[in-house]
Design a binder for these strands. Structure first.
Length: 234
DNA sequence: CGTCTTTGACCTGCGC
DNA sequence: GCGCAGGTCAAAGACG
């Protein structure tokens, strides 16, 4: 896994069956594109200091889990849930990393940000929890995992040119796992929002081709106010 | 003392 | 059905 280099994680996003390049007319609807047209604005409204001028330096990649979710994506973006997903993504992006112990805050040199959005299933995000954030009253976690299908929440990924992996975004995150990923010498870190009621998760990994690029993927939506869990206001 | 990171094991999904 | 890879859990240790 770790000795297989040559494939950029970003490529996996687009080549993998569960990750499709969005933004194209044959992959998503106009409504989705509409959203993508505005995504940078959305991010800009948060803490991320997006620099559109640099956005073209790196291929944008979006995450769409399944073909059958596209209709949902399209419809939702023009509806209400889409806004939730979008806002969640933006919220996550504008709040994401920044673990209390992360030094990223000041040294991160964010020169490039390519936001992307994805939606996995059309189910209620509030029901999609496999982590400690959601604990069924009587079903053991393991039993639940066996009997309940894992459902992905809307995801939002973007690449950042930074020397540090953990970019300060205002929210507090707790690392719950790290795995070596195939085709990449760099491990992937898994973070979860420290807010016990929040289901947002984040994955952080470096591009194998360009170690200076950090790929951050947010999944889910903050169930609390974007500012309620921030590390130091603003 | 509380919070967070680390790390190995386990589980699930997916392709062959 | 099997094997691989990704994702999550949970115990233990470290740190402030």
């Amino acid at each position: 896994m770790e000795d297989k280099e040559g494939v950029d994680p970003a490529s996996e996003f687009t080549s993998d069956s569960s990750w499709a390049l969005a933004g194209g007319p044959d992959s998503v609807s106009d409504s989705v594109n509409y959203f993508f047209d505005r995504e940078s604005n959305i991010l800009s409204e948060f803490d991320w200091n997006l620099q559109p001028d640099h956005a073209e330096q790196i291929d944008r990649f979006d995450e769409l889990d399944r073909a059958d979710t596209k209709p949902y994506l399209a419809g939702s973006f023009s509806g209400s849930h889409s806004c939730v997903a979008a806002a969640a993504a933006a919220c996550g992006s504008g709040s994401g990393s920044g673990t209390a112990s992360s030094p990223a805050g000041g040294s991160a040199d964010v020169s490039t940000l390519i936001p992307s959005v994805s939606s996995s299933s059309g189910e209620d995000p509030s029901e999609k929890h496999t982590g400690s954030g959601w604990k069924p009253p009587e079903i053991p976690s393991k039993a639940r995992k066996k009997g309940q299908k894992r459902i992905r929440q809307p995801r939002f990924a973007f690449m950042t040119k930074s020397e540090v992996e953990h970019l300060e975004d205002g929210y507090r995150w707790r690392k719950y796992g790290q795995k070596a990923v195939k085709n990449s010498p760099f491990p992937r870190s898994y973070y979860r929002c420290t807010n016990s009621k929040c289901t947002v998760k984040k994955r952080v990994e470096r591009s194998s081709e360009d170690p200076t690029i950090v790929i951050t993927t947010y999944e889910g939506q903050h169930c609390h106010h974007c500012c309620s869990n921030r590390v130091g206001s603003v």
